[in-house]
Design a protein around this nucleic acid. Structure first.
Length: 843
RNA sequence: GCCCAAGUGGCGGAAUGGUAGACGCAGGGGAUUCAAAAUCCCCCGAUGGCAACAUCGUGAGAGUUCGAAUCUCUCCUUGGGCACCA
């Protein structure tokens, strides 16, 4: 017999699939459709094991659904705009477009050998003018519907390079290239009005039954609906009152000071008048724009000298401080601080020696707050100190509602609902993105470009030798005619956030060549995405933006109403990790080594390496395994089988060389079994047992695929292979068992499955064969083994008929030797019989 | 700092309120072989015991339950996100 040769098998069957065109998605109204989509990749140039895992999972679903009779759409494309292309141009010269399209060609070449059931005829890249032109057209539609506007927003500003930095380009508060201390600076930017949809995006989460709870919870918290009280503090100097918003109005009697953001209008006014304030505010603006940077920065305050009157007692004056931790973007940019019940306020008050007043205590512990704020859950009852609305014992929730009613009745405050969700700032001061299709005209202002002039294409003649946006300094690109009055005007040079590109690609796949963003008939048929698969790192931004975009597209007539929630089911898969191998150079700095250079913990020259526990594969740590090498050594099926086998899909999987070898060995074993069984003839023994094992395997493997438990499907297939191998059944039964094995393995190891199928005389391609059905009758066991527990510990067991009445089971249990011994002649305190599961005797 | 997860043998994991450790890896023993590779069979949580068996055991601590890896609370560790990485 010849050997298992994955390379020959795999290219042979890939050709066969191509020839039969089995993966071309067809709009077939006579069939139910199934749209499976994995988050499309950024074209970095190399595929990595994370891609292999992600796309293999999607492929299992796509192939399985295809076998179940669905018309399947399983497309692939490229999230092709973004910073790395510009960085490459800066570092190595060349053009971002060349770099990107070369990378796409390389990655496509690396992906094809995986044998994924992708309809490659629908492929596109978001940097194709055909794609981003449609995106520009939608941007203009969104403008028409009032979903787009401009306002000022803060960016990371590098004062040396005179350029805007992405958050990732800020390291420890400094620009990554210049090393200069980064400042927060305001710039006029384009925004999508996602906040118009806050309530809707929040409420609709309840309908997403097939999304992970954790993702919905993260989005709920991100949208952050809160109810609170808005009211004004009157100033003693007669200046403009200070509006504050608070979610804890019930703690108003514990107010210590009023705090305003460094970007608050009052702070800005003082900044202009008072050099000391200007210096303080400048200090506050140091550092990056991320919430993390702001929250973890040292808390700084400045007493403005302004005083305000407490709304409940005009004789009670509170000082107004500027504080660096107050965000202008949230609420009104001003707060009152209640240090007794907020740790951050308390730390601030202790630092600047401001008063701390308790407003409530725990029911059983009236201890004043010292350096730890008392913050019980809002659902806990607490005891109030002279509450102004007359409360004595009440929960925080009750107190908040009572206080809002009290303030509204008294006329000094208003209950309001606010959301944490901010509008989506889409402006980027960068070249390699979709140009925002608007024109600045001296007479007409900011106006959209005419649709017939789309796409507004990126100019090709640009250089990256200087920091900043090449579009800004291009000699002619900005010049254009005003679409309204025809006079000379200037193009907008901001490009779009790459999240815009990925917010509608799923819709474009339904009609990738349409002359409009989508084609309604195609969108009607293919939408929604039935199964979306991607990393948990996209739980909030990408998924929330896509949900917004689907709504905006629906409003503009680009998607049917049913598609406002574009992803029916979501699955978030884990990462592929690997151990890190490290030595140290003469200065003690770590030096990393590729896994392929390490054998038994040693380098080729015998140096021992330090082994650091597994982490996400990354080039900088060199703990990467190139799928191309694995496919070359073992074949695509082995890579696919391995990434599915060891870990549950939602968790990280650790790549190990021994695991990959084990996968390869198993596939070889299946191949040999198939060839052995193909030659088998005649009768045998135990046919029914093997048939039962077969139906059990069909049932269990199917359940595993349906529930995204691919690792358990794999385990069941191992067990089934063992059962076939041990069985002495006749040739016919064994051949059927083995053909079923091929079908069950086909979604995971499609090439081997085709080979096994054909060796055993299967008809046509296993890829198009109907999925096997388990016979319910074959799954039922007549007798069951029931464990007997005594006081919750397993002590004995009982083999009984499955449908034996409860009373009979009790009798048999009480007659068990171990039970008799434990009872020592007495009566059991309690006897629990869970039919078919367990017996527990309490003595 | 805030939000969300995860933690089970030497290792990856199974079991989602009912026999903890399925299946696989590593390890040990055996068969086959002149020998090796490949392959096949058996054993394999810890402690004690010749054994039957007993005790302990799912990050730590408490709680609910006849019964907890699974539910609740507190803590620890690791990972993801924090609006310009994609």
């Amino acid at each position: 017999m010849s050997r298992f040769e994955p390379r020959e098998i795999e290219s042979k069957w890939q050709d066969a699939w191509d020839e039969a065109g089995v993966f071309t998605a067809r709009r077939d109204e006579s069939k139910p459709k199934y749209y499976v989509l994995e988050m499309f990749p950024y074209p970095s140039g190399r595929i990595h094991m994370g891609h292999v895992r992600n796309y293999t999972m999607g492929d299992v679903i796509a192939r399985y659904k295809n076998s179940c009779g669905f018309s399947v759409l399983h497309p692939m494309g490229w999230d092709a705009f973004g910073m790395p292309a510009e960085n490459a141009a800066m570092e190595r010269g060349g053009h971002p477009a060349t770099w990107t399209y070369d990378n796409i060609a390389d990655m496509r070449g690396q992906m094809k050998p995986l044998g994924l059931s992708i309809d490659w005829s629908r492929e596109f890249a978001t940097c194709d003018p055909e794609y981003y032109g449609q995106q520009q057209s939608m941007f203009i539609d969104f403008m028409d519907k009032g979903l787009v506007y401009r306002k000022n927003a803060v960016v990371n500003w590098d004062p040396v390079d005179m350029t805007v930095l992405a958050n990732e380009q800020v390291e420890d508060g400094r620009g990554w290239r210049s090393g200069a201390l980064v400042e927060r600076r305001e710039l006029t930017q384009w925004f999508f009005k996602i906040s118009d949809f806050s309530e809707e995006l929040l409420d609709a989460l309840d309908g997403l039954d097939n999304w992970p709870e954790k993702v919905k919870l993260m989005q709920r918290n991100w949208i952050g609906k809160s109810r609170g009280l808005q009211f004004a503090f009157d100033r003693t100097d007669g200046g403009d009152a200070i509006e504050v918003y608070t979610t804890r109005p019930d703690t108003l009697m514990g107010a210590s000071f009023v705090g305003i953001s460094p970007d608050h209008p009052i702070a800005k006014q003082l900044e202009a008048e008072n050099p000391e304030v200007a210096a303080f505010v400048a200090e506050c603006r140091k550092g990056g724009t991320t919430e993390e940077a702001i929250e973890t920065a040292e808390k700084l305050g400045y007493d403005t000298g302004i005083k305000v009157k407490h709304p409940l007692n005009p004789n009670w004056e509170l000082p107004v401080w500027i504080a660096n931790f107050i965000l202008m973007d949230y609420g009104t940019g001003a707060i009152f601080a209640c240090p007794a019940h907020d740790q951050r306020d308390l730390d601030f008050c202790r630092k600047y020696d401001l008063p701390v007043t308790d407003t409530f205590f725990a029911l059983d512990d009236p201890k004043p707050v010292e350096n730890e704020a008392f913050v019980p859950p809002k659902t806990d009852k607490v005891k109030w100190v002279n509450h102004f609305a007359g409360l004595d014992e009440a929960t925080g929730e009750e107190a908040i509602n009572t206080t809002i009613d009290f303030a509204e009745n008294a006329g000094w405050g208003q209950g309001v609902t606010k959301f944490r969700l901010r509008d989506w700032g889409l402006s980027r001061q960068r070249y390699w993105g979709c140009p925002i299709p608007v024109v600045h005209c001296e007479d007409c202002g900011v106006v959209p470009e005419k649709k017939e002039n789309l796409p507004v294409e990126l100019p090709k003649d640009v250089t990256f030798d200087k920091p900043g946006n090449p579009l800004d300094r291009h000699p002619t690109w900005r010049d254009c005619a005003c679409p309204t009055c025809g006079k000379p005007a200037k193009r907008e040079t901001d490009t779009m956030d790459t999240f815009v590109d990925s917010s509608w690609y799923y819709a474009r796949f339904t009609a990738p060549n349409a002359a409009t963003p989508t084609n309604m008939a195609d969108a009607e048929y293919w939408m929604n995405v039935d199964q979306y698969i991607g990393g948990i790192e996209h739980a909030i931004l990408h998924l929330l933006y896509s949900r917004f975009f689907a709504r905006a597209m629906q409003i503009c007539g680009h998607l049917p109403e049913k598609a406002v929630e574009p992803f029916d089911a979501l699955f978030t898969q884990g990462m592929v990790t690997h151990e890190i191998y490290q030595t140290r150079d003469e200065n003690g700095r770590p030096v990393y080594h590729l896994p392929e250079d390490v054998t038994d913990g040693k380098l080729a020259d015998g140096t021992e390496v330090e082994i650091i526990p597994s982490a996400k594969m990354s080039k900088s740590k060199k703990n990467v395994v190139d799928p191309v090498n694995i496919i070359e050594a073992f074949g695509a099926d082995t890579a696919r089988w391995f990434v599915l086998s060891d870990s549950p899909p939602e968790r990280d999987v650790e790549w190990t060389a021994s695991g990959a070898e084990a996968a390869y060995k198993f596939l070889g074993r299946v191949w040999r079994m198939a060839n052995d069984i193909a030659d088998l003839e005649g009768e045998g023994k135990g046919d029914e047992d093997l048939q039962r094992a077969m139906h059990k395997a069909i049932h269990e493997v199917t359940m595993g695929i349906e529930s995204f438990g691919f690792n358990t499907s794999v385990a069941k297939l191992y067990a089934y292979a063992n059962a076939i191998q041990k069985s002495k059944a006749g040739a016919e039964t064994k051949k059927l068992a083995m053909k079923t094995m091929a079908q069950l393995m086909a979604p995971m190891t499609p090439h081997l499955a085709e080979e096994v199928w054909s060796v055993l005389g299967g008809e046509g391609l296993v890829a198009t064969a109907a999925w096997p059905k388990a016979d319910e009758k074959m799954l039922v066991e007549d007798t069951v083994t029931m464990p007997i527990q005594i006081n919750g510990k397993r002590r004995s067991e009982l083999k009984i008929a499955k449908d034996l009445p409860k009373e009979e089971v009790e009798k048999l249990a009480l007659a068990d030797e171990a039970v008799i011994k434990a009872l020592a002649g007495g009566q059991p305190k309690k006897l629990i019989v869970v039919p078919g599961r367990i017996i527990n005797v309490v003595v």
